[in-house]
Amino acid sequence: MKIDASKPLEYSTEENSNKIFGFWVFLGAEIALFATLFTVYFVLVDRFASGPNGSELFEIGPVLLETFLLLTSSFTIGLAIHAMRHGYKKAMMFFFGITLLMGLGFLAIEITEFFTYVHEGATLQTSAFLSSLFVLLGTHGAHVTFGFLWGTAILIQIKRHGINPATANKSFIFSLYWHFLDVVWIFIFSYVYLKGLM
Protein backbone atom coordinates (compact mmCIF):
# COMPACT_ATOMS: atom_id res chain seq x y z
CA MET A 1 0.00 0.00 0.00
CA LYS A 2 1.55 3.30 -1.06
CA ILE A 3 0.88 6.16 1.34
CA ASP A 4 1.01 9.66 -0.05
CA ALA A 5 2.03 11.87 2.86
CA SER A 6 1.10 15.09 1.05
CA LYS A 7 -2.60 14.24 1.29
CA PRO A 8 -4.83 14.03 4.36
CA LEU A 9 -4.88 10.56 5.93
CA GLU A 10 -8.34 9.68 4.59
CA TYR A 11 -7.17 10.30 1.00
CA SER A 12 -3.66 8.93 1.45
CA THR A 13 -3.89 5.67 -0.52
CA GLU A 14 -5.40 5.00 -3.94
CA GLU A 15 -7.95 2.69 -2.35
CA ASN A 16 -8.94 5.39 0.10
CA SER A 17 -9.46 8.06 -2.50
CA ASN A 18 -11.43 5.60 -4.66
CA LYS A 19 -13.66 4.83 -1.70
CA ILE A 20 -14.40 8.49 -1.10
CA PHE A 21 -15.17 9.08 -4.76
CA GLY A 22 -17.31 5.95 -4.83
CA PHE A 23 -19.25 7.19 -1.86
CA TRP A 24 -19.96 10.47 -3.63
CA VAL A 25 -21.37 8.44 -6.53
CA PHE A 26 -23.44 6.45 -4.06
CA LEU A 27 -24.75 9.71 -2.60
CA GLY A 28 -25.82 10.58 -6.15
CA ALA A 29 -27.97 7.45 -6.08
CA GLU A 30 -29.27 8.45 -2.65
CA ILE A 31 -30.27 11.84 -4.04
CA ALA A 32 -32.24 10.07 -6.76
CA LEU A 33 -33.84 7.90 -4.08
CA PHE A 34 -34.97 10.79 -1.88
CA ALA A 35 -35.96 12.85 -4.92
CA THR A 36 -38.33 10.05 -5.88
CA LEU A 37 -39.74 9.92 -2.35
CA PHE A 38 -40.28 13.69 -2.29
CA THR A 39 -41.99 13.49 -5.67
CA VAL A 40 -44.32 10.80 -4.37
CA TYR A 41 -45.01 12.95 -1.32
CA PHE A 42 -45.79 16.06 -3.38
CA VAL A 43 -48.09 14.06 -5.65
CA LEU A 44 -50.01 12.64 -2.72
CA VAL A 45 -49.86 15.50 -0.22
CA ASP A 46 -53.36 16.80 -0.92
CA ARG A 47 -54.94 13.36 -1.04
CA PHE A 48 -55.65 12.97 2.67
CA ALA A 49 -59.10 11.40 2.13
CA SER A 50 -60.98 11.26 5.43
CA GLY A 51 -57.79 11.51 7.51
CA PRO A 52 -56.04 14.61 8.84
CA ASN A 53 -53.90 16.87 6.66
CA GLY A 54 -50.54 18.36 7.55
CA SER A 55 -51.76 21.49 9.31
CA GLU A 56 -54.03 19.42 11.56
CA LEU A 57 -51.31 16.91 12.36
CA PHE A 58 -47.97 18.69 12.65
CA GLU A 59 -46.69 20.44 15.75
CA ILE A 60 -43.71 22.72 15.43
CA GLY A 61 -42.17 22.07 18.88
CA PRO A 62 -40.78 18.54 18.54
CA VAL A 63 -39.85 19.18 14.91
CA LEU A 64 -37.74 22.19 15.87
CA LEU A 65 -36.02 20.09 18.48
CA GLU A 66 -35.31 17.36 15.91
CA THR A 67 -33.93 19.98 13.53
CA PHE A 68 -31.76 21.47 16.24
CA LEU A 69 -30.32 18.08 17.18
CA LEU A 70 -29.58 16.97 13.65
CA LEU A 71 -28.09 20.27 12.50
CA THR A 72 -25.88 20.45 15.56
CA SER A 73 -24.77 16.87 15.05
CA SER A 74 -23.69 17.79 11.53
CA PHE A 75 -21.52 20.49 13.13
CA THR A 76 -20.03 18.10 15.70
CA ILE A 77 -19.16 15.46 13.08
CA GLY A 78 -17.36 18.28 11.27
CA LEU A 79 -15.43 18.98 14.48
CA ALA A 80 -14.65 15.26 14.79
CA ILE A 81 -13.12 15.22 11.30
CA HIS A 82 -11.22 18.40 12.11
CA ALA A 83 -9.81 16.75 15.24
CA MET A 84 -9.01 13.65 13.21
CA ARG A 85 -6.93 15.66 10.75
CA HIS A 86 -4.90 16.98 13.65
CA GLY A 87 -4.50 13.48 15.03
CA TYR A 88 -6.36 14.20 18.29
CA LYS A 89 -7.84 10.79 18.94
CA LYS A 90 -9.64 11.67 22.19
CA ALA A 91 -11.22 14.85 20.87
CA MET A 92 -12.25 13.04 17.74
CA MET A 93 -13.91 10.24 19.68
CA PHE A 94 -15.63 12.77 21.91
CA PHE A 95 -17.18 14.69 19.02
CA PHE A 96 -17.98 11.50 17.15
CA GLY A 97 -19.74 10.14 20.24
CA ILE A 98 -21.70 13.40 20.73
CA THR A 99 -22.80 13.18 17.09
CA LEU A 100 -24.13 9.67 17.55
CA LEU A 101 -25.90 10.60 20.78
CA MET A 102 -27.64 13.49 19.05
CA GLY A 103 -28.64 11.11 16.28
CA LEU A 104 -30.12 8.88 18.93
CA GLY A 105 -31.97 11.82 20.45
CA PHE A 106 -33.34 12.71 17.03
CA LEU A 107 -34.59 9.16 16.60
CA ALA A 108 -36.21 9.14 20.02
CA ILE A 109 -38.21 12.28 19.20
CA GLU A 110 -39.13 11.00 15.75
CA ILE A 111 -40.40 7.71 17.15
CA THR A 112 -42.40 9.56 19.81
CA GLU A 113 -43.87 11.71 17.03
CA PHE A 114 -44.87 8.59 15.09
CA PHE A 115 -46.58 7.17 18.19
CA THR A 116 -48.43 10.46 18.67
CA TYR A 117 -49.64 10.46 15.05
CA VAL A 118 -50.83 6.87 15.30
CA HIS A 119 -52.47 7.64 18.63
CA GLU A 120 -54.37 10.47 16.97
CA GLY A 121 -55.65 8.00 14.38
CA ALA A 122 -53.24 9.00 11.61
CA THR A 123 -51.74 5.69 10.49
CA LEU A 124 -49.95 4.36 7.44
CA GLN A 125 -53.27 2.92 6.25
CA THR A 126 -55.42 6.03 6.73
CA SER A 127 -54.70 7.92 3.52
CA ALA A 128 -52.29 8.25 0.64
CA PHE A 129 -50.94 11.46 2.20
CA LEU A 130 -50.11 9.68 5.44
CA SER A 131 -48.62 6.67 3.65
CA SER A 132 -46.23 8.94 1.78
CA LEU A 133 -45.47 10.96 4.92
CA PHE A 134 -44.61 7.89 6.97
CA VAL A 135 -42.49 6.33 4.24
CA LEU A 136 -40.60 9.56 3.52
CA LEU A 137 -39.88 10.24 7.21
CA GLY A 138 -39.34 6.54 7.85
CA THR A 139 -36.76 6.19 5.09
CA HIS A 140 -34.86 9.16 6.49
CA GLY A 141 -35.21 7.76 10.00
CA ALA A 142 -34.02 4.33 8.84
CA HIS A 143 -30.97 6.01 7.33
CA VAL A 144 -30.26 7.73 10.64
CA THR A 145 -30.69 4.42 12.48
CA PHE A 146 -28.33 2.70 10.08
CA GLY A 147 -25.95 5.62 10.47
CA PHE A 148 -26.05 5.24 14.24
CA LEU A 149 -25.12 1.54 14.04
CA TRP A 150 -22.47 2.14 11.38
CA GLY A 151 -21.00 5.07 13.31
CA THR A 152 -20.84 2.98 16.47
CA ALA A 153 -18.90 0.29 14.61
CA ILE A 154 -16.44 2.91 13.35
CA LEU A 155 -16.09 4.45 16.78
CA ILE A 156 -15.14 1.06 18.23
CA GLN A 157 -12.54 0.63 15.48
CA ILE A 158 -11.02 4.03 16.23
CA LYS A 159 -10.83 3.15 19.90
CA ARG A 160 -9.11 -0.14 19.10
CA HIS A 161 -6.76 0.86 16.30
CA GLY A 162 -6.42 4.61 16.60
CA ILE A 163 -6.43 7.04 13.70
CA ASN A 164 -4.86 5.32 10.69
CA PRO A 165 -5.55 5.52 6.92
CA ALA A 166 -8.31 2.88 7.18
CA THR A 167 -10.24 4.31 10.15
CA ALA A 168 -9.72 7.90 8.95
CA ASN A 169 -11.16 6.92 5.61
CA LYS A 170 -14.20 5.28 7.20
CA SER A 171 -14.80 8.22 9.50
CA PHE A 172 -14.58 10.71 6.66
CA ILE A 173 -17.04 8.72 4.55
CA PHE A 174 -19.35 8.46 7.54
CA SER A 175 -19.22 12.23 7.92
CA LEU A 176 -20.26 12.65 4.28
CA TYR A 177 -23.22 10.34 4.93
CA TRP A 178 -24.18 12.22 8.06
CA HIS A 179 -24.07 15.60 6.34
CA PHE A 180 -26.18 14.17 3.55
CA LEU A 181 -28.86 13.05 6.01
CA ASP A 182 -28.83 16.55 7.39
CA VAL A 183 -29.41 18.03 3.94
CA VAL A 184 -32.34 15.67 3.39
CA TRP A 185 -33.75 16.71 6.75
CA ILE A 186 -33.57 20.39 5.79
CA PHE A 187 -35.79 19.57 2.82
CA ILE A 188 -38.15 17.57 5.02
CA PHE A 189 -38.26 20.38 7.56
CA SER A 190 -38.97 23.05 4.93
CA TYR A 191 -41.20 21.27 2.46
CA VAL A 192 -43.01 18.79 4.67
CA TYR A 193 -43.34 20.49 8.05
CA LEU A 194 -43.14 24.25 7.41
CA LYS A 195 -45.15 24.06 4.20
CA GLY A 196 -47.60 21.65 5.87
CA LEU A 197 -48.10 23.99 8.81
CA MET A 198 -48.95 26.94 6.59
Binding site: A49, G51, Q125, T126, S127, A128, S131, T139
Partner: peptide, 25 residues
Protein backbone atom coordinates in the same frame (compact mmCIF):
# COMPACT_ATOMS: atom_id res chain seq x y z
CA UNK B 1 -36.10 0.77 -5.27
CA UNK B 2 -38.75 3.25 -4.15
CA UNK B 3 -41.44 1.90 -6.49
CA UNK B 4 -40.88 -1.63 -5.20
CA UNK B 5 -40.77 -0.47 -1.59
CA UNK B 6 -44.10 1.35 -1.98
CA UNK B 7 -45.54 -1.74 -3.65
CA UNK B 8 -44.36 -3.83 -0.73
CA UNK B 9 -45.91 -1.38 1.76
CA UNK B 10 -49.19 -1.46 -0.14
CA UNK B 11 -49.29 -5.24 -0.30
CA UNK B 12 -47.85 -6.19 3.09
CA UNK B 13 -48.72 -3.28 5.39
CA UNK B 14 -51.89 -1.87 3.88
CA UNK B 15 -50.60 1.56 2.89
CA UNK B 16 -52.55 3.57 0.29
CA UNK B 17 -50.07 4.57 -2.40
CA UNK B 18 -51.60 2.88 -5.41
CA UNK B 19 -55.04 1.95 -4.11
CA UNK B 20 -58.36 3.08 -5.55
CA UNK B 21 -59.68 4.46 -2.25
CA UNK B 22 -58.38 6.80 0.46
CA UNK B 23 -56.55 9.04 -1.97
CA UNK B 24 -54.29 6.43 -3.57
CA UNK B 25 -53.21 6.94 -7.16
Amino acid sequence: TIALALMMFDRLFGSQFFTMANGGM
